[in-house]
């Protein structure tokens, strides 16, 4: 390539204080997005997985109804469930692993040494997770609606709130879990295993029987509650409230605890020190 064609002057973020930094968040967000979508494994595991599972599970019995879930079509159950999965996968599983890799390869140290403010960096990461979650939810809803005739929610605001709470709290959980993983090699096993065990316990693959011991256990963890919070806006036609305040509250408490752990334990340099 001709060196002469290498870019024009990189425009610096300008404008006073906050405006400049918000612009910096937007720029950083762009590169976070590029890095996410170009990492095929991570993108496939997060976005592709939920789409494939929705297709497989629903195609195998899309129009059957289940008594366990209030005589709903099975696909009507799986669509919000996998939307919640997408949020959790992007924010907890993907972010957790990415942060460990960045820490252990020295990327975080480099960022720490650069002038970028910490809040700008984390703001961009959070925003990037929100974008991934939005794309994913939109994709699932489109597939659900047009392939399987899923009834979309009346209360979009309730779904958006669940999405927002999910992104923030599970991002905090992702940061928190990254601080307890000692090495790059153990990041995938520790984070993904904990994630899938909780998903299994939480009724993503099959609805939990109320009062069963699985339901009792999963009640203590945030995964089940986020799934319920995503489910509620779809369920409101049955007369229930679309706002799952109690479940969102539980997720928020987990998010708060995770934030405390994340802030206290966060490390910018490789653990092998």
């Amino acid at each position: 390539m001709d060196p002469g064609t290498v870019s024009a002057i990189a425009a610096p973020a300008s404008g006073p204080g906050l405006v400049r930094d918000l612009r910096l968040v937007a720029r950083q967000l762009r590169y976070e997005q590029l890095a996410f979508w170009r990492n095929r494994t991570g993108a496939l595991f997060t976005v592709g997985f939920s789409v494939i599972f929705l297709l497989l599970l629903s195609a195998s019995g899309a129009n059957q109804r289940s008594n366990v879930i209030g005589n709903l079509k099975i696909v009507q159950y799986y669509t919000p469930g996998f939307a919640a999965y997408g949020v959790m996968s992007a924010c907890y599983n993907n972010l957790g692993i990415v942060l460990v890799v960045r820490r252990e390869t020295g990327l975080l140290k480099r960022l720490r040494l650069s002038p970028i403010p910490t809040w700008v960096l984390f703001g961009a990461i959070l925003a990037s997770n929100a974008v991934i979650a939005l794309v994913q939810v939109a994709l699932l809803l489109l597939i659900g609606r047009f392939a399987f005739g899923v009834v979309l929610p009346d209360q979009w605001a309730a779904l958006l709130l669940a999405l927002l709470v999910g992104v923030v709290c599970f991002s905090a959980l992702g940061v928190a879990i990254s601080t307890v993983v000692p090495s790059q090699d153990s990041a995938g096993p520790i984070i993904s295993l904990s994630f899938f065990v909780l998903l299994f316990l939480s009724g993503l693959w099959f609805p939990l029987k109320a009062g069963s011991s699985l339901a009792k256990i999963s009640n203590y963890f945030p995964v089940h509650h986020l799934i319920v919070a995503f489910f509620a806006p779809f369920e409101s036609k049955l007369g229930a409230s679309p706002w799952a305040w109690g479940d969102l509250g539980t997720v928020a408490i987990w998010g708060a605890i995770a934030t405390i752990i994340a802030v206290r334990r966060f490390a910018w340099e490789p653990r092998r020190h």
Binding site: S7, S14, L24, S114
Partner: peptide, 13 residues
């Protein structure tokens, strides 16, 4: 990306 962190960066090229 890194140029955008500084007030007066060198041109990328």
């Amino acid at each position: 990306r890194n140029a955008s962190y500084y007030p007066a960066p060198r041109p990328v090229a």
